Amino acid sequence: MRPLRLDSLEIFVDVVRCGGFRAAALGRGVSSSAISQSISALEEALGIRLLNRTTRSVAPTEAGERLLERLSPALHDIRTAIDDLNQLRERPSGTVRINAPGPAADHVLCPLAFDFMKLYPDVDVEIVSDAAIIDIVEQGFDAGVRFGNQLAQDMIAMPLGPALRYALVASPEYLRHHSRPDSPSDLLQHDCIRRRFPGGTMETWAFEKDGEEVEISPQGRLTLSSAYHERQAAMAGAGIAHLLEDYVRDDLAQGRLVELLVDWKKRLPSWFLYYPSRRHTSAAMRAFLEYIRRREWPAVGR
């Protein structure tokens, strides 16, 4: 049996996590052929196939699944042991990997990370923009960002940013040809720009006024999956969009968009940064958490 290289085990985990050789190679800064050779050498050393390969996808075999189940905690223990040495350094080092929806990454997480990296030059930050609900531990992330009601019970969560509100907007051009809605139910007669989430479900629009809550399923000809594209569509007069205020604040101020049903705004919880309660937290991640705890978030008015 050929000698087993420990780094090939970590490469195997990367290939499964990334879903293919090319993505794993990009993450490691090497060629796809180098990744393929490492996996082939690992399979030869173990005497068993670990991955099923097709022209379009790579998936673990039953043996690969079993190995992955044991490897993930073992590799984490190795990283923890190395990180323990990091505590002896004057400055934290390492990588912080965070999974977050696009809006949270755009307006809260990225600005925080940029300032954090200036204070901690030895820490690398990787932010993956993804709206799907995932297992951050299984996918190799240190933390994730979601709304409070989307968090698993075994996670520690902390507020990330102020409370949120959506704005209902349309262009002046659209309103020249359509009457303004006076209530949420009027929106059912309008061309609304709909959003489909990664899991396939359609977004519903929630409103609140004087204790009355209303939720509608918007109707319209255009369906998108990106807040930026929805904003572009609204600017082009394609319909009414339902977007977080951060995306349209400047457009409203400049008159490029007009806000509708202002008195029906529903206030939402803030984003939450969450991380596993049963997992060792690296020095780099602890520094990031402490940086967030020191922040003071502005209040959002009614």
Rank of each mutant, 00 (worst) to 15 (best):
residue 42 L to C: 05
residue 138 E to D: 07
residue 53 R to Y: 03
residue 186 D to W: 07
residue 119 L to A: 10
residue 145 V to I: 06
residue 40 S to Y: 14
residue 277 S to Q: 11
residue 235 M to T: 11
residue 92 P to F: 07
residue 108 V to F: 11
residue 237 G to W: 10
residue 154 D to M: 02
residue 143 A to R: 03
residue 220 G to H: 10
residue 171 S to F: 13
residue 38 S to D: 06
residue 289 L to C: 04
residue 258 V to F: 07
residue 221 R to E: 15
residue 234 A to T: 06
residue 163 A to Q: 13
residue 202 M to L: 12
residue 107 H to L: 06
residue 147 F to R: 08
residue 150 Q to M: 11
residue 284 A to H: 05
residue 201 T to Y: 13
residue 219 Q to K: 14
residue 298 P to D: 00
residue 45 A to Q: 06
residue 212 E to S: 11
residue 293 R to H: 10
residue 146 R to V: 03
residue 250 D to R: 14
residue 101 P to S: 00
residue 181 P to F: 01
residue 274 Y to G: 02
residue 10 E to H: 09
residue 72 S to E: 15
residue 191 D to F: 11
residue 82 I to E: 09
residue 75 L to Q: 02
residue 200 G to K: 04
residue 251 D to M: 09
residue 162 P to F: 09
residue 89 R to H: 12
residue 25 A to V: 02
residue 131 A to D: 14
residue 239 G to T: 08
residue 19 G to D: 01
residue 302 R to L: 13
residue 176 R to M: 12
residue 238 A to H: 14
residue 299 A to W: 09
residue 235 M to F: 10
residue 104 A to Y: 05
residue 108 V to Y: 10
residue 103 P to C: 01
residue 236 A to R: 12
residue 184 P to S: 01
residue 101 P to R: 00
residue 156 I to R: 09
residue 268 L to W: 15
residue 232 Q to N: 15
residue 127 I to N: 00
residue 26 L to Q: 08
residue 263 D to Y: 06
residue 241 A to Q: 08
residue 104 A to L: 05
residue 82 I to K: 13
residue 3 P to E: 10
residue 53 R to A: 04
residue 301 G to R: 12
residue 57 S to W: 03
residue 248 V to I: 03
residue 259 E to S: 13
residue 96 V to C: 01
residue 66 R to I: 07
residue 76 H to S: 07
residue 104 A to K: 04
residue 230 E to D: 09
residue 69 E to W: 11
residue 296 E to R: 15
residue 184 P to R: 00
residue 136 I to D: 01
residue 71 L to P: 06
residue 116 F to H: 01
residue 82 I to Y: 15
residue 105 A to I: 02
residue 66 R to Q: 10
residue 229 H to T: 15
residue 92 P to A: 01
residue 16 V to N: 02
residue 255 G to N: 11
residue 90 E to K: 13
residue 13 V to K: 08
residue 167 A to V: 05
residue 114 F to W: 09
residue 35 I to V: 12
residue 154 D to P: 08
residue 158 M to S: 03
residue 236 A to L: 15
residue 94 G to D: 02
residue 189 Q to H: 12
residue 109 L to M: 00
residue 294 R to E: 09
residue 30 V to G: 01
residue 92 P to I: 02
residue 278 R to W: 14
residue 54 T to I: 06
residue 42 L to E: 07
residue 238 A to I: 11
residue 27 G to D: 02
residue 74 A to D: 05
residue 153 Q to M: 10
residue 37 Q to C: 06
residue 158 M to H: 03
residue 92 P to L: 00
residue 93 S to Q: 05
residue 150 Q to P: 08
residue 62 E to A: 14
residue 203 E to K: 12
residue 95 T to E: 06
residue 53 R to K: 08
residue 131 A to Y: 03
residue 139 Q to R: 10
residue 34 A to I: 09
residue 27 G to T: 00
